[in-house]
Computed example of a mutant assay.
Amino acid sequence: MHFIDHLIFLSGGLPIIMALVLLIALAVIIERLWFYLRVFGAGRALEKELKTKSSREWVESASRPFRQTIQGRLVQTALQSNTQDIAVLDRLLDEQIMHQLPDLDRYLWILDTAVTLGPLLGLFGTIIGMIHTFNVLGAHGAAIKATGGIADALVATGMGLLIAIVAVSFLNFFNKRLRLALHELDLIRVMLINAMDEKTPRDALIGASWDHYESLSEEARHLGHDDLRGAEGA
């Protein structure tokens, strides 16, 4: 306990701030892990149901357990559209997917901030610790005290790097989950159009899906993510 108090004093109290940053980052990681676990669980189940449904009534019955999920909202949009025009339905589903983007991207900016802020706070704490250490150089036995003080001051840098390593690892993981979630929503969109209008040519569906996929890629780039076309190979 004395050593921890010594480190906090030596680094100007910054280890407390870094511990808070790490705690917030861990809270975001746990929340996002639970969120994406539910998203992909519901998505796989809904895909399985839609593969066996070929009419509006069957789609409605299959979607009832998923109404509170992002995929279920997409299905509800299709069911409530009251349109027989596939182009109009496609635009409505496209709009609904765009509405789901903030939920998929929520809190990831915190991890992005922690990646940069952690090492900077650690470096700043080390600099403060070095200043305190060099203040004892004029005293007797200063060389030994200075060596120990420098070693203690470097602990702040290590803490900052630890925060960055944890945050960047999960940030990249969640960016991949986000791309896959958007890809899954696009797949469900095409399956809905196919189920609700059996007369739609398959080539037209594929062309509409590709145009929509390109629009999602552009939107993802605005959010700071890679092209969605890398979802399969990332």
Rank of each mutant, 00 (worst) to 15 (best):
N194D: 15
G12R: 01
D197W: 12
Q76F: 00
Q96K: 09
S11M: 10
I86Y: 13
I17K: 06
E198P: 06
M18N: 07
A25F: 10
I110Q: 10
Q96P: 03
H6G: 00
I17V: 14
A234K: 03
L14F: 06
L137V: 13
R202N: 10
L123C: 15
V115S: 06
L104D: 00
L111N: 13
L178N: 10
D152C: 06
A139E: 15
A42E: 04
A62G: 02
L50F: 09
E214D: 04
L123I: 15
A45G: 01
A78M: 13
G41V: 08
A181Y: 07
R73F: 01
G12A: 01
L46F: 05
A220F: 12
P65S: 10
A220S: 11
L123E: 08
S217L: 10
F134G: 04
L46M: 13
L74V: 00
F170H: 11
E57L: 02
A45I: 08
H222Y: 05
V166E: 10
I17D: 00
G207N: 06
L92T: 00
L216F: 14
P15K: 05
V168Y: 13
I30R: 02
L111S: 13
F40A: 02
V168D: 15
V115Y: 09
G125L: 07
D203C: 02
Q96G: 01
I8H: 10
I165F: 14
I17L: 02
A151D: 01
T83A: 03
T157Y: 11
H2P: 03
R32H: 12
L228D: 03
A204G: 04
L137Q: 09
M196D: 01
T147Q: 04
A45H: 14
D105F: 03
K53M: 05
N175H: 15
L180Q: 14
L10A: 03
S61M: 13
L20T: 11
L187V: 12
A167D: 11
L23F: 14
